[in-house]
């Protein structure tokens, strides 16, 4: 059974029809990439799954439960976390406080272990745990955003443009981390403009164009698909 099942969602911004009848699914243990140009609707889809936006039709099912009417703040507690576009860490709060808020729905128990794991993986965050998140570099903020999402022990993690604005070496590091999380049992839904990178670690991919899914295939087939290469992979 699919872990996440999105069926026929239609999302509007006022009179603008942003997402037009989109449906896709993510199986347990997979890495799925959702690729598409700027403005195709990738972020809108993730926000709809997280409950920040609402679809007029269809449904979003997570582990068999219809979550399309569940309030946004209850979704993370079900095991579905999101690293939002632009990271959106709390700039005026310390690194440690940001991580603590990531575990908002969790009890104190287990928090220490996850925290130790994150600090081991990102020694920079440990060094700067008392600093305001706003003083971190872009790369460090991305690490923090991912660490923050990991604090809720998600079964599935949705990442929105994690490579945006980062130096290539940092992009590598972020993608390594995504692979590591996946190997640890976390299902991944990855939204990226960096299609090459995203497809290189994914099992399957969906291509989004102006609010509709136009292609879906195994990631390696998409990497070799001529039209996809032309449009998203630079020929």
């Amino acid at each position: 059974m699919a872990m996440l099942e999105v069926e026929n969602i239609n999302v509007y911004y006022g009179s603008i029809h942003a997402i037009k009848g989109v449906g896709f699914h993510v199986n347990e243990g997979e890495i799925i990439s959702l690729i598409g140009a700027n403005g195709a609707g990738k972020t809108t889809i993730l926000q709809t799954i997280s409950g920040l936006l609402r679809s007029k039709t269809g449904s979003v099912k997570f582990m068999g439960q219809d979550i399309s009417h569940v309030p946004a703040h209850k979704i993370v507690g079900l095991g579905l976390a999101q690293v939002p576009e632009g990271r959106r860490v709390f700039l005026q709060m310390s690194v440690a406080e940001n991580l603590e808020l990531g575990a908002y729905t969790q009890g104190k128990a287990g928090m220490e272990d996850t925290l130790t794991m994150i600090y081991d993986r990102f020694p920079r965050l440990k060094e700067r745990r008392k600093q305001m998140a706003g003083t971190l570099s872009g790369g460090e903020q991305q690490m923090l955003a991912m660490g923050r999402a990991m604090m809720s022990h998600p079964k599935m993690l949705m990442l929105d443009e994690p490579s945006m604005g980062l130096a290539p070496i940092l992009v590598e590091e972020i993608f390594d981390l995504i692979k590591m999380l996946n190997e640890g049992g976390t299902t991944i839904l990855l939204v990226e403009q960096n299609a090459q990178m995203a497809l290189s670690i994914a099992d399957r991919g969906y291509v989004l164009e102006t609010g509709s899914i136009v292609t879906s295939a195994a990631a390696k087939d998409l990497l070799n698909d001529d039209s996809v290469r032309k449009a998203y992979l630079g020929g």
């Binding site: 926000q47 997280s50 409950g51 920040l52 309030p71 946004a72 703040h73 209850k74 993370v76 507690g77 976390a81 999101q82 939002p84 959106r88 860490v89 709390f90 700039l91 005026q92 709060m93 406080e97 603590e100 808020l101 990531g102 908002y104 729905t105 923050r148 809720s152």
Partner: peptide, 24 residues
């Protein structure tokens, strides 16, 4: 306090706060 930190989070970014599980 936890509620106090939630308050600061909401004051900065309500969307991100909701993603943390905070009831805005």
């Amino acid at each position: 306090t936890k509620r106090g930190k939630a308050m600061r989070a909401c004051s900065e970014d309500k969307g991100a706060a909701q993603l943390m599980g905070i009831n805005v």
